[in-house]
Amino acid sequence: MDQFHDIRPYNDDEVAGVLETLVNTPDFINTIIGFRFAKWPQWTRGLLTVLVKRALKKETQRIDSVKAFQSQVAGYMERMIKTTTTAVEYRGVEKLSADKGYLFISNHRDIAMDPAFVNYGLYLNQLDTVRIAIGDNLLRRPFVSDLMRLNKSFIVKRSATGIREMMAAFGQLSDYITHSIQVDRCNIWIAQKEGRAKDGVDLTDPAIIKMFYMSQKKQKIPFAEAMKNLHIVPVSISYEYDPCAFEKAQELHQKSTTGSYQKSEFEDIDSIRKGIVGRKGKVVVTFGDVIDHNCDSPEEMVAEVDRQIINNYAIQSTNRAAHNLLQGKDSGDAAFDEYLRSCPEDIRQQVLTMYANPLIQIEKIRS
């Protein structure tokens, strides 16, 4: 019996069937039309539906494995990089070995692009791409779940309610991560905490580390040894410009002024779209060192992950400019000044703080 069948990515023998289902899913086709042809008049929708389905059938008919699907995704990544970034730099990837599975714990700024940029760096260096942890809150539309699982995503059941159900979900997740690394020798990507760091403060949730340990704790393996078995590598992802910065700041502003914020039904899907097509400037992905020394408690592991993620964060010109403006100085960055002209005045402080916080964190940890 496949104990992970309800959370794992799709296997090669499932790919063709899932793709056929996707091509015949109206919600998926309509989303593509809305994404690519948003400005076309409504009367063209019928023709576009026929043409998009025909193009997708042609494009997917030769895809019969996860690797083939990801090769197709790599082509889209290359085009996205050319149109939305000025440069993409990878640091520390040369330290990774192809014969070992790693648990990459990453800071989290963009729902889809964070693991996508990590994946692309591994792909360029002939290393195995990651299995991606994704919350079931993002999978409200079935076609999104199918697409994510085709791209090696596995499901984190955040919607679990009640202590027993939550513990069962965390236990299954822990077993899956441990099995992926120790048995399958596959790489895993997971964010350091639930949700994006909308304020730019990158801190690890101890609950994530405790979840990692659940599987090996059942085998009476000491905490420090269990963590070493997972080959944990902290990853720092830095964007010069965040395509969703104003939306994040608006959420923070609303929470600070009203005490709450209610997401619209498909707000996360829209954030994914903006993250893909939006301006990013320079992107830097830094792979830290494998944590192979003794961390005897979740708190010690959290401290080490945070230390590496914060120290390895590539400070961008926008981080310095925002920091300068918060101190009452000139930004020193004309491009950032131009960017801020389109920022609503009521969220300007949140935007500046979001961009400045990585630099503030580094100053704190090094002082």
Rank of each mutant, 00 (worst) to 15 (best):
D2V: 10
D2R: 11
Q3G: 14
H5L: 15
D13A: 05
E14W: 03
A16I: 13
L19V: 08
L22W: 02
N24M: 12
I32D: 03
F35H: 13
F35V: 07
R36I: 07
A38K: 10
T49L: 13
V50F: 15
R54G: 12
A55W: 15
K57A: 15
K58M: 13
S65Y: 01
Q70L: 08
Q70K: 14
M77I: 12
A87L: 12
E89D: 05
L96I: 08
S97Y: 12
F104R: 01
I111Y: 01
M113T: 01
D114R: 03
P115H: 04
G121C: 00
L124Y: 04
Q126I: 13
T129L: 13
L147P: 08
V156C: 07
S159A: 04
E165N: 12
A169N: 03
S174W: 02
I190F: 06
G195S: 06
R196C: 03
A197I: 00
M214F: 07
Q219I: 15
A224R: 01
A226D: 10
M227K: 08
L230R: 01
P234M: 06
V235L: 10
C244H: 01
F246L: 14
E247H: 13
L252M: 14
T258A: 10
G259I: 10
Q262V: 15
S264K: 12
R273K: 15
V277C: 04
R279K: 14
V285E: 05
V285F: 01
V290W: 08
D292M: 04
N294Y: 13
P298G: 05
V302Q: 13
R307S: 09
N319P: 06
A321L: 06
N324P: 03
Q327G: 08
Q327F: 12
S331Q: 02
D333A: 06
R341C: 09
S342W: 13
V351L: 00
L352T: 04
T353R: 12
M354E: 02
M354F: 10
Y355E: 00
P358Y: 02
P358S: 07
Q361P: 02
I362K: 15
E363T: 10
K364N: 11
